[in-house]
């Protein structure tokens, strides 16, 4: 039980860091720092704000490991999860996470005007599915 609780906490913390950084940097701090004067300072601050640009992959690693464990504790296999055998919220969540992993691998921190909004939409969907999984619809 303690291990399960620890896995849930780690899963949520990794999620908060991964999605929180992505949401805030893309929508708030990245654009806000761009408007700082002079331009050289803006560029410096934006570069420094990406100093820990490698946060995404370690957070994802924790999410995958804890996620697989939590699936196992639910008695659900990964493939079954994707196929909707354990219900649509889990299936949708897993497909959205896969999409976000694809975005991170292919785009990362590069400029990607429309794609970033699709990634954000996926993140919000993941959070919605997680809410339904815990509380019910």
């Amino acid at each position: 039980m303690l291990l399960y609780q620890a896995a849930v906490i780690l899963h949520v913390l990794a999620m908060a860091l991964w999605i929180g950084h992505m949401l805030i940097w893309s929508l708030v701090t990245g654009p806000a720092l761009k408007a700082v004067e002079p331009a050289a300072t803006a560029e410096l601050l934006r570069a420094r704000s990406l100093e820990l640009g490698g946060l995404g992959w370690p957070a994802l690693a924790i999410l995958v490991v804890t996620g697989l464990y939590l699936l196992d504790m639910r008695g659900t296999g990964l493939v079954d999860g994707f196929l909707g055998e354990a219900g649509w919220p889990l299936a949708l969540k897993l497909w959205c996470v896969l999409g976000m992993i694809g975005y991170q691998a292919l785009v990362g921190h590069r400029q990607a005007s429309l794609a970033i909004y699709a990634n954000i939409a996926l993140a919000l969907l993941v959070l919605a599915c997680s809410t339904v999984l815990v509380r019910g619809g």
Binding site: G20, L23, L45, S49, E51, L52
Partner: peptide
Amino acid sequence: VAVTGLALFWAIMGR
């Protein structure tokens, strides 16, 4: 999650 992202921003910038 947004609050966590904002707090992370300040930690990253500080470091």
